[in-house]
Structures are given as C-alpha cells and as structure tokens.
Design a protein around this nucleic acid. Structure first.
Lengths: 145, 145
DNA sequence: TGCTATTATTTGCATTTACAAATAACTGGC
DNA sequence: GCCAGTTATTTGTAAATGCAAATAATAGCA
C-alpha cells in the first residue's frame, strides 16, 4: 500500500470513477449516458429547474450542460421553457418520454446504491454519506472567486 | 434535502468534482493539470510503471493516457522506455523536470487533503478512507467482462 | 426613463476523452 | 521453430468538455 492509498482525493476519485464507468456501461444500451441520467434525476427531484441550478446540482459545467440539453431535447427527453418571471433564465422540464426513461433507470440506480454499500451496516452507510457531505462543504471555501 | 442528497454515487461524484475543479485551478498556473498530476503522483509512488498499470492506478483510460503521456513527454516531464523484459510494454519514468514538478505540487496536494478533512478527527478520517476502499472493492464485481 | 453593472445562457474554438480497430510482441502447443 | 490466440499499446475518429467571449435580459439608480 503506497502513499496514494492514503490520499483522500485519490480514494474518492477512483471509487467515483469505478461507479461511473460501470453505471455508464449499464445505461448505454438504453440509449442513455451517465450525464443524461444526472439531468433526469435532478429533474425528477424537482422539475423546471434552471440551467444554472442544474449545473450546480449535477456538477456539469454550464456550457457543457447547454449542449447536453440540446441533445436531450432532440431526443425528446426534456423541453426548455423561457422562465416567465425572468426572461434571461431557461427552465428545463422532463417530457413524458423523459419521465419514462427515468422510471426505467431509477431501479438500476437503486441497485448501484445497494451494490456499492454491500456489507455496510445502516449506520456505516449513514456515516459515510454524512462524511461526504461534510467534505463537500469543506471545499466550498476554495471555490472560484 | 431531496432524494439526491441521500444517493451515494451522487454524493461521491459531487465531492470528487468539487475537489477536482479546485485542485485543477490551483495547478493550472504551474502549467499542470489534474491528470498530469495523477500520472506524476503515480510515478512518484513507483517509477517505471507500465501504461496499463498507470491507467489502472490513475483511472485514466489507456487511450487517453497515451495522448496525455505524449504531451507530458513533449514537455519533458516524463520519458517512455521500452520494457526490457517484455517489448510489448512501455515503462514510464519521471525526468528531473518531472520530479521537480512533483516536488512543487506535492505540498499543494497535502494541503488539499487537510482542507477536505477539516473538522474530521483522525478516526473519522480513517473510517472514511476505509469505507472508500471497501466501496471501490464492492464495485469490482460489475467491471467490464 | 435611460444608462451601467450584473446575471443567465449560449456559442466559438481548441483540447480532452473514449470506443473500436490496428499494430506489435509475447506465449503455449505442436 | 512456427502458428494461433492473447496481451500491451497506439491510432482513427467522433463526441464531450471547458474556458473565454458573445448575446440577451434584468436591476439599480441617477
């Protein structure tokens, strides 16, 4: 066990990368990608989010998100709408096809959660999640000025 | 707090993304990127690794790694060498310039470890790291056949 | 109201990324 | 020693990514 194995960002990245890769391969046959799933999941949590909000939530850069949403719109999964209150903003909405896709992927996502946490007690899982939220908050300070 | 906040892959990804972005911005002025750092760190742990080994260690896809290494070689940070024992393989070696870069970035990486784990006790940090290793191992089963 | 500064999103463009196919070299069985 | 199958890396190519600039619209204030 070298120094890397004790380095948190390393452990975090490789765990995330492994889940991401496996999940991506799983949803590809369904015509989805990990990124499209992230958007759909965010809209499932709350529909009609703005682009900027979605970017924050999904950790996808706004300019990347714009083009991702272009594709999802072409596929009929989501629809853009100009925000009535603020015409600068765009809100994104899942279409029936998008919701159908969400219903298909949701159980897969749930399975991944289970597999990832196999052998963890309820408490251990909670502790881990809490730690990840703290970690996320800790990094808030160093964000782009 | 919506459903996403309880979903492990989500928490994992956003924590990783935030660290990655912040770290990337930090090393950019030094002429480095997060990915080049991953390679340098892996070589710092053990020099003369093969491409495939590096790909595993850094979670960078081999074909991506090839081109990343091309760039690093052009910048004089690393050198490829044909493996004496097995001429199919290539081993990668940090050059003096590469080691110099490593010495510069290492303290930054250490600082990030500290910031990320701010407010964590020694025990909590250890528990978290152990959990991330277990999680990584748990995903081993679903890997590409 | 009209102007300036700010905010939300998109677009331009060069780089990075990843799947698949190609290349190169090894291994084991004959 | 030679061939078939396997392993290590690279290359082809299309798509995804991200910074910076452009566009569009709001907000505050003189």
């Amino acid at each position: 066990m070298g120094p890397l194995d004790g380095y948190l960002p390393y452990l975090l990245n490789r765990a995330g990368a492994r889940i991401a890769t496996a999940f991506g391969e799983e949803v590809r046959p369904l015509g989805a990608t990990l990124q499209t799933w992230r958007v759909l999941a965010a809209l499932h949590e709350r529909d009609g989010r703005r682009m900027g909000d979605l970017s924050e939530t999904t950790s996808i850069e706004v300019s990347t998100l714009t083009r991702l949403v272009d594709n999802m719109e072409k596929k009929g999964l989501v629809a853009r709408r100009r925000d009535a209150a603020d015409a600068r903003a765009v809100t994104l909405h899942a279409t029936p096809a998008g919701r159908r896709m969400t219903r298909i992927i949701l159980p897969i996502a749930e399975r991944y959660e289970k597999v990832a946490l196999e052998g963890f007690s309820e408490t251990e899982a909670t502790v881990l999640k809490t730690a990840l939220r703290r970690l996320f908050d800790n990094m808030d300070g160093l964000r782009k000025s």
